[in-house]
Design a protein around this nucleic acid. Structure first.
Lengths: 137, 137
DNA sequence: GTAATTCCTAGTAAGTTGATAGGATTAATA
DNA sequence: TATTAATCCTATCAACTTACTAGGAATTAC
């Protein structure tokens, strides 16, 4: 299951990408428009800023803005920051690999074999889709 | 993340499928061989039996056995029983659909659009792979 | 100086996961 | 028929995760 955190984060990024305004977009505006609890969204946007997806301006008339082209923000990267590993089991994760306790030989493991395929297909979708595709601009 | 329950379930099914023996395979044997807590595995196999993937024989020399061809047991169906929805959000789930509270129009939602693609690709893998593919027989 | 905004840390209720406990039931066999 | 070995069933529980909320500090525009 996709967490609310990730879902809210993606919706917020989309909202910012679609925004026509020159000035930064405020959390309150996004929260209201997308029906996201504001304080929760604050923490999510903070994470996205610290991970290099967003810039921010503090104080009055502050807010968040994109610091990269929408076409350069891959969903795979956003998901890794908000959701964690993309793979369904750590033993097939590219970025968060961990050996299984119960497996002697990974290459004999039927679950491993299956989950590699799932990962590859999911990863392809998430790498091909950028924020431009989500936002439509 | 794939739950331990699902992972153990898949490993157990694979074990049973690979078993040469005529007589049913016992939980204790699977648990030992695959390093799965026995009592936990008991409950998982019970679920798989109730869902029609396994048959069982009680009492001495009892155990579990397949009641379908390995080629007819699709991973998608097993996953739905053990793990629940395959889709990452309920609003793109085929079998467990639920509307989002926060979305007015699903077709405008960027998350929806993305997760449909993820679901389609995951589903293809999970439908194409049967227990025969996992077990190699 | 005031209002409006982001930034930061901490806490928390509710739900889920990954088990374990304890036995009831059933069947083979000596 | 008694014993043993297996599945079946229900209940319970600790640890973890999620989805927030609280409260304020820091910063900036005007």
């Amino acid at each position: 299951m996709l967490s609310k955190k990730t879902k809210y984060g993606l919706k917020a990024l989309t909202y910012i990408a679609r925004s026509e305004s020159e000035s930064p977009v405020q959390v309150g505006e996004i929260a209201k428009s997308e029906k996201i609890p504001q304080k929760f969204l604050e923490s999510i946007l903070l994470t996205l800023r610290k991970s290099g997806f967003l810039g921010s301006k503090k104080g009055k008339n502050g807010g968040y803005y994109l610091i990269k082209e929408t076409s350069e923000i891959k969903m795979a990267d956003v998901l890794r920051v908000l959701e964690g590993p993309i793979a369904m089991v750590p033993c097939v994760s590219l970025n968060f690999y961990e050996k299984c306790d119960d497996c002697q030989d990974e290459h004999e493991c039927s679950v491993h074999k299956l989950m590699i395929q799932v990962r590859d297909n999911t990863l392809k979708v998430l790498r091909d889709n950028t924020l431009m595709d989500l936002a439509g601009k």
